[in-house]
């Protein structure tokens, strides 16, 4: 007899995601101070309020997706972000990116990334990746460094043991959370693996050994910026990703590679928000191409 209750209901999926985000939140608080909680809190509260406003008739928040969206926005935004910017990001995410498209399940773009990208463009001066401890982050320094080589720049305090300073520990915490999600079978390992492979291959091909145009080794790029958060928590959003194996591989490799290209060739320090949104555009096409054929037996 199979149990009638699904082992993984949508609401319990979201609870697992929240649990998996906890180590990342904890490490971020430990490294950058309590102000992180204001950023995360403002984003989450605004997301919940918008969700309530958009689902007036049903008032059904129990699927938990709004909370997860708010948490992700709060974790993406740097510590120094003013609280109202966090709120604007969440309102855009829930109202425009999700409910304007028809609510949970019908959105084309990842809500968290859409909200984050919107404020990134709207308030560039307010969202600067400053670490409370070390000033500009490693990715920020790489993006605006002039003609210094990797060796010169990596002696600065922004670089850590193997990744960006501080960010390497946050990334490790998100990696742990992601492995937890795989262990409780909320996500499958294929998608995050392909994101990491995508950014790894791109970084390896663009890495010329440390000249002034180089952008660091695959290892550095895996543990800098929002790599792990994107690979395990953002790319794996079931609504805005393909559901067939072929589509998943192309989508995830694309996210990784595009993010690396943005890191190297644009003035944005980290490109995951844009690469996820770009990859979202291709999901309907990937669904169509990779659709399973009917088996005749």
């Amino acid at each position: 007899m199979v149990s009638a209750r699904p082992k993984r209901a949508t609401s319990s999926v979201m609870i697992h995601v929240m649990i998996a985000l906890l180590p990342g939140v904890a490490v971020q608080v430990w490294l950058t101070g309590w102000r992180t909680l204001i950023v995360i809190g403002a984003a989450t509260v605004a997301a919940l309020a918008t969700e309530i406003a958009c689902t007036r008739r049903t008032r059904d928040l129990s699927d938990g997706s709004a909370v997860v969206t708010g948490l992700l926005i709060g974790l993406c935004l740097p510590v120094s972000t003013p609280w109202f910017v966090c709120m604007v990001a969440s309102v855009i995410a829930i109202a425009l990116a999700k409910h304007a498209f028809g609510g949970l399940g019908n959105n084309v773009f990842n809500p968290a990334m859409a909200g984050y990208a919107a404020v990134l463009i709207a308030y560039p001066a307010l969202i600067v990746e400053f670490d409370a401890i070390s000033g500009a982050t490693a990715l920020e320094q790489l993006a605006h460094r002039g003609s210094t080589t990797i060796d010169e720049i990596s002696t600065s305090a922004a670089f850590g043991v193997f990744g960006a300073s501080n960010h390497e520990w946050i990334n490790l915490a998100f990696l742990a959370g992601g492995l937890y999600l795989i262990a409780v079978r909320v996500i499958q390992p294929l998608m995050p693996l392909c994101v990491l492979v995508g950014i790894g291959i791109a970084a390896f091909m663009l890495d010329d050994g440390g000249s002034s145009t180089s952008h660091g080794s695959p290892l550095f790029n895996w543990f800098a910026g929002g790599t792990m958060l994107t690979a395990f928590f953002v790319a794996t959003d079931p609504v805005t990703s393909p559901s067939n194996r072929f589509g998943i591989v192309i989508y995830a490799l694309g996210i990784g590679a595009i993010a690396m290209l943005i890191r190297k060739y644009s003035s944005w320090p980290d490109g995951f928000a844009f690469s996820v949104l770009l990859a979202n555009c291709f999901v309907p096409l990937l669904e169509r191409i990779g659709r399973t054929r009917i088996s005749t037996t």
Partner: peptide, 9 residues
């Protein structure tokens, strides 16, 4: 039942 979230399970 809720909306389909296209998880593909």
């Amino acid at each position: 039942s809720r909306a389909c979230i296209h998880c593909g399970w």
